[in-house]
Amino acid sequence: MVNVLFFAGLQEAVGEHRVTLDVAGKTIDELKTLIKDTYSLGHLDHVMVAVNEEYVGENIILNEQDTVAFIPPVSGG
């Protein structure tokens, strides 16, 4: 299983901070599409993705126990 985290406005849109999904073996791109469809979101083009606390590209393949974070454009400072 893979842990998936949402933050800020995306967390509000999804209605969850954390979900656990059976998506090991899928790519980030495939997970994005799944999330978009599951939660009826618009496109996620501006959302960066981190796996195990590091930013990754869309072609990365997920492993069991990975933690994926969907990171909308940041606004700290």
Binding site: A8, G9, S40, H46, A50, A69, V74, G76
Partner: peptide
């Protein structure tokens, strides 16, 4: 990965870019 949410008298909004001109409206429905 830090985000701020503005609270105004007439509403709230998560801010998605530092120019503060628009939020990341394209990412959510």
């Amino acid at each position: 990965p830090i985000w701020k949410k503005e609270h105004w008298s007439d509403g709230t909004q998560w801010i998605g870019d530092q120019k503060e001109r628009h939020s990341y409206d394209k990412g959510i429905p």
